[in-house]
Every structure is written in C-alpha cells, then in structure tokens.
Design a protein around this nucleic acid. Sequence first.
DNA 1: CATGAATAATAATTCAAG
DNA 2: CTTGAATTATTATTCATG
Lengths: 73, 73
Amino acid sequence: MKPGRQSVIMEIISQRDIETQSQLLEALAERGIKSTQATLSRDIKDMHLVKEQGPAGTYRYAPSAKRTRTARQ
Amino acid sequence: MKPGRQSVIMEIISQRDIETQSQLLEALAERGIKSTQATLSRDIKDMHLVKEQGPAGTYRYAPSAKRTRTARQ
DNA sequence: CATGAATAATAATTCAAG
DNA sequence: CTTGAATTATTATTCATG
C-alpha cells in the first residue's frame, strides 16, 4: 500500500497546502486512503518531505530540495 | 540579539548536523549564546530552515531550498 | 517489511513581560 | 518587536502484530 499512498501524498501536497500530518491524514481519507499519523511520519521521512514556512506565516509540507540519489525515485 | 544568534545558527548547521532544537540550543551555548527552545523554534521559522532527512537515517536542520524574497535577507 | 496504537520526544504557540 | 516559561500540539519512535 505504501507506493500508492505516497503517490497520492505527492499529489495532495502539490495541490494544496498541508500544515500538519493530521491534515494530510484527512486529505488521504477524502481520497479513500486510510492510514495513521505514525505511517505518515514515516512516509514523510521516506519521501524527503519537509515542513517549511509557506507564503503566509504558516507551515506546510513540501518536497526537500535535495533529492538524494541514494533512495529510489 | 536575534540577528547575531541567527548568524551563528547558520554557521552551526553548516558545520555539523543538528538533529533537534535541543542540540542546537547546546551548540549555541558552547558559543556563549544562551537561548530557549521557544526562541529557536521561531528562529527556524524565520530563517526558513527545515528538518530534513540527512544522509544517515537521521534528521537534521538545513536551509530550505526556496528563499522567498518576501522576507528580508 | 509495512503498519497501527500507544508513548516518548520534539516543536509550535500562548501568555505574560521586558 | 523579542523573548522565556509553560503549555499544547505535533511528530518520531517503540513495541507489538500481520
């Protein structure tokens, strides 16, 4: 289930600002993917996503600049 | 005190891997700068630093790719 | 090896206050 | 407008379990 979920996570964060893992959890649920915060924390680490400061004063998850070639993709 | 502290934070994270704000707090203390976790959290936001996955499986603070021109500096 | 529930650890924010 | 102490919120990890 991991690959599919991670693809959808990418889609979601590219489409709208996600401030917390809870929000991401909800967004996934809306798309029929049920998971837990623990898993999302791991996915975020896997995918090299980072919580950055967005345009507004808010935080949001985004891809890290450096995509290490070490990890697949 | 903010400007000086933030400069030193930049130095520190460019020199060694900092995994947590507590570690950063200690590193600053070593350089004679005393602060608190609350302030570091704010500095990190100000400076657009992000907690990214480092080479090892570990996390570390690093500059975000996008330096918005919106904020000064 | 991926995951969830629970927990521990960490980080963001609130609430004074200078 | 910056900060610290305390608190809340959020995230990482541990400890099973499939």
